[in-house]
Computed example of a mutant assay.
Amino acid sequence: MIPASLIPMAEPIPVPWAWFDVLLILTFTAHILFMNALLGSAAIGLVRTVRGNDGLMHDVGQKLPPLLALTINMGVAPLLFLQVNYGHFDYVSSVLMGGWWLGVIAALLFSYYGFYAYKFKYDAMSPGRRNTLFVLSLAGLLYVGFMLTNNTTLMLLPAAWTQYFENNGAAFLNWGDPTLFPRFLHFMLGSIALGGLFVALLGQWRKIDEYVDSGMAWLTRATLVNLAVGMWFLIALPRDIMLGFMGGNLPATLTLVTSLLASAMLLAAGFQKQPKRAATWAVLTVFFMSCTRHWVRTFFLAPWFRIEDTPVTHQYSSLYLFLGFLVVGLALTGYMLKLYFKSRQGRA
Rank of each mutant, 00 (worst) to 15 (best):
M1F: 12
M1I: 12
I2Y: 02
P12F: 05
P14R: 05
W17T: 05
W17F: 11
W19E: 00
V22N: 00
I25N: 06
L26W: 04
T27L: 00
A30T: 10
L33Q: 04
F34C: 09
M35G: 10
N36A: 15
A37C: 10
L39Y: 07
S41F: 06
L46Q: 07
R48I: 01
G55C: 04
D59Y: 00
D59A: 09
P65C: 11
L68F: 10
L70H: 05
T71K: 02
V76P: 00
F81D: 06
Q83C: 06
V84F: 11
V84W: 11
N85T: 15
N85E: 14
Y86R: 07
F89W: 06
F89K: 10
Y91G: 04
Y91E: 04
S93C: 01
V95W: 08
L109G: 13
F115P: 00
F115I: 03
Y116P: 06
D123G: 01
T132C: 13
F134S: 12
F134D: 10
V135H: 02
V135F: 08
A139L: 14
L141Y: 04
F146C: 09
L148N: 02
L148F: 12
N150Q: 02
N150R: 01
N151V: 02
T153K: 01
L154K: 02
M155Q: 06
A160E: 14
Q163H: 14
N168V: 10
N168M: 13
P178L: 05
T179H: 01
F181W: 11
R183W: 03
F184S: 05
L189W: 08
L197G: 08
V199F: 03
E210K: 14
D213G: 00
S214H: 02
G215C: 13
R221D: 05
T223H: 01
L224M: 15
N226L: 11
G230E: 05
M231Y: 08
W232H: 07
I235F: 15
M242Q: 13
G244Q: 04
G244N: 07
F245I: 11
P251H: 13
A252K: 03
T253Y: 03
S259W: 01
L261H: 11
A262Y: 06
S263Q: 04
A264D: 00
A268G: 00
G270R: 07
G270L: 08
G270N: 03
Q274P: 03
Q274L: 14
Q274Y: 07
P275N: 01
P275A: 03
W281M: 13
A282Y: 02
A282L: 07
F287Y: 14
M289R: 03
T292Y: 12
R297T: 15
F299K: 05
F299R: 06
F300G: 11
I307N: 03
P311C: 09
T313H: 08
S317L: 15
S318E: 07
F322E: 04
F322N: 09
G324T: 14
G329K: 09
T333F: 06
G334V: 00
G334E: 03
Y335G: 08
Y335N: 09
K338V: 11
L339R: 11
L339I: 06
Y340W: 10
K342C: 04
Q345T: 14
G346S: 14
